[in-house]
Amino acid sequence: MSAMAFADPAFESQAAFRAILRAIASPGAIEPCGRGLKPPSPLSPAAAAAILTLADFETPLWIAPSLAEWGEAAAYLKFHTGAPLAASPRDAAFALLDLERDSLDLKSFAQGAPDYPDRSTTVVAETRSLARRPMMRISGPGVRGTAEIEFGPTPGDFLSQWEANRSTFPLGVDLILAHGAEVAVLPRSVRVTGGE
């Protein structure tokens, strides 16, 4: 394996986990994650850190075709996590895709079950930009008033997809946005609307 994962696995994975937890607790907050990590192209440090921290041998990982075609990136994640590769999005505990090259279809992922809402997919989406600007407004649990976020490219039907996803709470998909060495999280419980 040519690319190293965390230099200090215990410390760095804990730091990444705490960053993701802070981002979950404060939807719309942008947290540093994966600094110092040098994954193979085209993985960002943040996306790699999220998968390295959350996935393991018991959590099937689906990698979108645009990223799977980069064999080194897929091999890196599989080697360092031990996660089996899922045959389809619906079979995945975690999924990795690139919003610039892959379509986002939230309903294609595992939604959980009434007795086991945690059996849904957490989607890690690579973005080309991530900022606290008023493209979208977030409200709901963990948000005081509203929060603002902008990420791109944003699917044209994202707001309607997200409303459909949120409407089935506690079922639904959680979304981790990864850009460079930063993450933001949209938990399934929050409302996302167009900004001004």
Rank of each mutant, 00 (worst) to 15 (best):
S139E: 08
R35T: 14
G82R: 06
P60I: 03
S129G: 15
P134H: 08
F57Y: 03
E12L: 05
G82M: 05
L175S: 12
P27K: 01
G34P: 15
S167V: 02
G34H: 11
R188T: 00
T121H: 12
Y116T: 13
T154G: 14
L97F: 11
T168G: 13
A15T: 02
E148D: 06
R22D: 13
I138T: 00
E163C: 03
S129A: 14
L106H: 03
I176C: 10
A113L: 07
D174L: 03
L130K: 07
A125I: 09
P32K: 01
S160F: 00
F17M: 09
W62N: 11
G140K: 01
A83G: 12
A47R: 01
D91E: 12
I24W: 01
G36K: 07
E100R: 12
L106Q: 03
T122D: 09
A110L: 12
A19T: 00
L52T: 04
A86R: 10
E150G: 09
Y116M: 11
E100D: 11
A3R: 06
P9R: 03
L54E: 08
S2I: 05
A73L: 09
P170Y: 02
A68I: 01
G71P: 05
T154F: 13
A5N: 11
M135T: 12
L67C: 07
S103A: 15
L54N: 07
A87I: 04
